[in-house]
Design a protein around this nucleic acid. Structure first.
Lengths: 208, 208
DNA sequence: CAACAAACATACATCAATGAATGTAAAAAG
DNA sequence: CTTTTTACATTCATTGATGTATGTTTGTTG
């Protein structure tokens, strides 16, 4: 075989990324060779080195297909009245995030990032995880601060502690689920835990 | 150099394990060769293959130095009156666990297991993490069930949900801290979060 | 004190993976 | 229709790590 049309080339690129996803998840990043990936995609290593500089470059490209900042999740809800109910905004954003993560591609890539790759080349997965965590925690603190200002947060809790508590809970849940997603549904248990946690953190509205 | 006395041999074995710890933590398990470990321990690969079958065997030996089942933490408190206050037992066990994990060796090994090693040879770190998580969750459910029976748990919460919530929080906290332990003290923040969480989960004792 | 075996060091064979170099057929540009 | 790229396949050289085999020295045992 030889040269393909542009569309076909883009298709093999995607096939390579798909194959990398599957292989990385199954055998781990370190133990999968570029040749295994190429074979699983139906091409040779030549194609890999044509589309990507090396394994790290391929890895980065794989990650780019699933980025999901916290703020976007809130914006996607599109309910402007939600600004007055920050805790509800958090709740719905979490639900959105759960649903996203249950899509196979999102799940696989995050599982790879968190559980199936070590530092290699110039790739530092822990730094990436830190970035994500920092971003999420920052957003949570903002929302909880707003909630506190409106009196929706229990008065004996600081927004920071509430944010850290929820973030830890979310992080632990993610890790557990990504380790073995067949054991339970993220949407189900996630909803259960987040709703419970937010209920515990919320100040009961005063009854007249 | 050649044969050493038994004590000296045991010392080099420990030196190898120490070197492996440091190297695994710094470069990751996959990217550290047995020669690097040997050199850092002041010996050659011959010593490694004398004391251990291969890298997996060395890895297992490293893990064996830091096992810490949840039940032991409770038993170590040694307060028999604690059977009547399960939530307090959980709290103190967590505090004990935090203090343990802040010891450098415990921290390093767990950081390696969770963040710096992929599946390799016959080693499956995710299965190990699952074992630990299952054990901890099972113990937590028992204690929360006891707490519910005594009316110490909020009546609108099931012991299972409470256990999962706390376990997720603990897990998330561990992961965060192991990623960058210099950012905060586990004992400090852990105490803060666990105390808060248990306070939220607890049923306020009825006042006459 | 002799012989053995422990505790390594050294040397070697092997293999898998990488990256670069080169080949090539077809698509696209002119 | 010719030329130039593109999109790969194929080959090759190099490297790094592993496992094993063998050598060597010194505690230790009888």
């Amino acid at each position: 075989m030889a040269r393909r049309t542009k569309a076909e080339a883009a298709a093999t690129r995607e096939a390579l990324l798909d194959a990398a996803e599957a292989a990385f998840l199954e055998r781990g990043v370190a133990r999968t060779s570029l040749e295994q990936i190429a074979r699983e995609a139906g091409v040779t290593r030549g194609a890999v080195y044509w589309h990507f500089k090396n394994k790290a470059d391929l890895f980065r490209a794989m990650l780019l297909r699933v980025r999901m900042p916290f703020e976007e999740l809130v914006e996607e809800i599109g309910d402007p009245g939600l600004a007055e109910r920050p805790l509800e905004a958090i709740r719905q954003a979490c639900h959105r995030g759960f649903a996203r993560l249950e899509q196979p591609r999102y799940r696989r890539v995050h599982a790879i990032l968190i559980h199936h790759c070590e530092t290699f080349a110039e790739i530092d997965p822990l730094a990436m995880q830190n970035e994500i965590a920092q971003e999420a925690c920052g957003a949570l603190i903002e929302y909880f601060t707003a909630a506190a200002r409106m009196g929706h947060l229990r008065h004996d809790l600081s927004p920071e502690v509430a944010a850290r508590l929820l973030q830890a809970t979310l992080g632990g849940l993610f890790h557990d689920w990504l380790r073995n997603h067949e054991h339970f549904s993220l949407v189900e248990r996630g909803t259960q835990l987040v709703d419970t946690q937010l209920r515990l953190l919320a100040q009961a509205p005063e009854s007249p």
